[in-house]
Amino acid sequence: MPLTNQAILITGAGGGLGSTAALALAKKGAHIILLDKNIARLEAIYDAIVAAKAPEPIMYPFDLAGANEDEYQELADRIENKYSSLQGVLHSAVELIAFTPIASLPVHEWAHTLNVNLNAPFLLTRVLLPILQKSEHAAIVFTSDSSARTAPAYSGAYGVSNIALEGFAKILSEELESSRKIRVTIFIPGPVDSPLRKRTFPAEDKSKLPAMESLAPIYLYLFGSESIDITGQVVDARTFYL
């Protein structure tokens, strides 16, 4: 479905899944706000969107872990001044440093991972809610992992943050359900041939994994009109069929 004049913010927009979503949504007419701390990756997805003759996106270099509350609010104020309202937020940024036993997990690694994977989605969602509520319909999508249900050994701060993020998303969906304006979804992309997967599972045969582009139709569904009345759901790419 066309997403003309829809403003959607994507965190981790320079990453594999973030850039896949950004390009897919932009090709359908969405105005994308690209959020990432890596400027080179931001420029790459910006160029790809422009080359596709989609609406020109906005690049916003932003360190989710290092930003303070005032900087989050400044981001929200700039979005409101530019677009007046916001129709979507995709939390796609993720930190996974290594699979580590709890007994060996450095404190700074624990804190940094939770900052990116849990605290940042909370802070960003909180400052953006007033702008999302200005829309007739809006979507917040949290990216999680199937491990949130199994809590495997060595998943460390990454595993804990996913479990907590899903809980946060469910609480948020319950609180927003009565207004019927903002829908909240937990998205599990499953194993795909992404840069993060290459780094964390280097010995795996990636030729057997789906390409990142296979997720594009699901991103379009999550932010399109077909999902307007669906909230509080977990969408798993491995079992989802349009």
Results as ranks from 00 to 15, higher is better:
134 K>Y: 06
79 I>E: 06
183 R>T: 02
234 V>P: 04
214 S>E: 13
33 I>P: 00
124 L>F: 02
138 A>N: 08
27 K>G: 11
149 R>D: 15
33 I>D: 01
105 L>M: 14
156 G>L: 11
208 K>Y: 08
180 R>F: 03
60 Y>A: 13
164 A>I: 09
69 E>T: 15
230 I>Q: 14
78 R>A: 14
55 P>I: 05
186 I>W: 01
97 I>A: 10
3 L>I: 12
235 V>W: 07
138 A>M: 11
166 E>S: 01
6 Q>R: 15
170 K>E: 13
115 N>V: 02
212 M>S: 13
76 A>V: 11
62 F>I: 05
111 A>Q: 15
192 V>Q: 11
75 L>M: 15
53 K>T: 14
129 L>F: 04
155 S>Y: 13
45 I>F: 06
83 Y>D: 03
167 G>K: 02
224 G>E: 02
182 I>L: 05
206 K>I: 15
232 G>W: 07
165 L>I: 12
121 P>G: 07
94 V>L: 04
231 T>N: 04
35 L>V: 15
93 A>E: 01
234 V>G: 01
55 P>F: 04
119 N>K: 12
203 A>V: 12
126 R>A: 10
232 G>T: 07
80 E>A: 14
132 L>V: 08
82 K>W: 09
143 T>H: 01
207 S>F: 03
19 S>G: 13
175 E>M: 06
33 I>M: 06
236 D>R: 01
151 A>S: 13
152 P>F: 10
105 L>E: 14
163 I>Y: 06
60 Y>K: 12
19 S>F: 07
238 R>H: 09
36 D>C: 01
65 A>S: 10
34 L>E: 01
174 E>V: 13
170 K>N: 09
220 L>F: 00
145 D>T: 10
238 R>G: 14
113 T>V: 06
49 I>A: 08
170 K>Q: 12
14 G>S: 10
227 S>V: 02
4 T>G: 01
98 A>G: 01
88 G>T: 05
232 G>Y: 08
117 N>F: 03
124 L>P: 00
133 Q>K: 11
